[in-house]
Design a protein around this nucleic acid. Sequence first.
DNA 1: AGCATAAGCGGACTTCACCCCGTTTTCTAT
DNA 2: ATAGAAAACGGGGTGAAGTCCGCTTATGCT
Lengths: 199, 199
Amino acid sequence: MHFGKPRAERADAVRNREHLLRTARQMIAEEGVDKVTMDGLAERACLGKGTVFRRFGTRAGIFRALLDADERAFQEHAMSGPPPLGPGADPVERLIAYGRARVDFLTEHHAIVRACFDRSRPMIMGDPSMTQLHIRVLLREAGSVPNLDGVAVQLTAALEAPLLLYLSRPQREAESPDRDETIAFLGDAWQTLIERVMR
Amino acid sequence: MHFGKPRAERADAVRNREHLLRTARQMIAEEGVDKVTMDGLAERACLGKGTVFRRFGTRAGIFRALLDADERAFQEHAMSGPPPLGPGADPVERLIAYGRARVDFLTEHHAIVRACFDRSRPMIMGDPSMTQLHIRVLLREAGSVPNLDGVAVQLTAALEAPLLLYLSRPQREAESPDRDETIAFLGDAWQTLIERVMR
DNA sequence: AGCATAAGCGGACTTCACCCCGTTTTCTAT
DNA sequence: ATAGAAAACGGGGTGAAGTCCGCTTATGCT
């Protein structure tokens, strides 16, 4: 009765997944996120449509997979990079730095992040994001906050939701004039919020 | 050259819109939000599909229209109802009361609220919701907050996003045991947040 | 009332996500 | 090496959103 190893992923599966991700990245670079269709991707990768769905489940799944690597790298930085983002700085400093970095990250990956949404199966509260966990830890380090879990949820929402929900411009080019404005706007707002909550 | 009256909406159009909304409400009551399809709605209302799209633009548009009346009533309450929600109470009290009422409202209309999302054309930051405006006004009344606009955006996100984004269970029955828990959880968190920001 | 015209209507058509299931490939145990 | 099982593949099928355009009807003007 040895579970634990439900048999590793088959070699062709791995090969195909990577090929599909590469192809998807190309398509995004050439035509933008919403020109990536399941049929189109399959055809361009010379694979069956069924394969694409088997690998990623849903369309949103592709974008989640694409984001995954960058997301890991980002959290890595936040958890063990140099201060003020990483350990070593004052927790409040770290919270502020985290927020600014996160705004930057989400803006950078804006199109893909938004494409991760799945109308049918959205994120559940029980599945706290890395961001929420990180904020929670730093809040606790920064001093006693009542209702820690609740506040962590809401600060996470305050940080991420504006980019996920409220602002969503075409933002074709990375050099858009209001791109930097937006980043500064939300970063400053975050800093203000944290300073007032923690003072 | 008199614009201003681009000719009022035709009588049949009005009739059909109301008929469609009534029918949609029935279908929602009977089978739930995501069984409401454009074809189904058109057929049940004995109208062409083109008509449904002409009236509401997109599927999400139907739900926005359905929410509209209730949303107005809610804002009415918040702006001119009895304290602590309405005018007369201390601004901080009002902010807290508003948040609790809003959580309640969003939970009550959860299914429809979520159905208002539109993958292709999401809300723009330039279109600040009533909630954002209200929060902004109360914040200003409550005392000088630096970065007023930014903080208003983020508090709005903190209040609404958890219900829009992070928690989304089927929540079929209104008497679900964790429904009340959720309302209390988010309401308390909101109160904590506001108290700390404003202290 | 009668007419011109803009608004509204209907439903076929297109596109896309997602499902299904018979066929093929890889893996493992012998 | 080989057979048998499990996993992966392929692509046609389905249902739903959204578009198009020729037809119909309300409305305002005379």
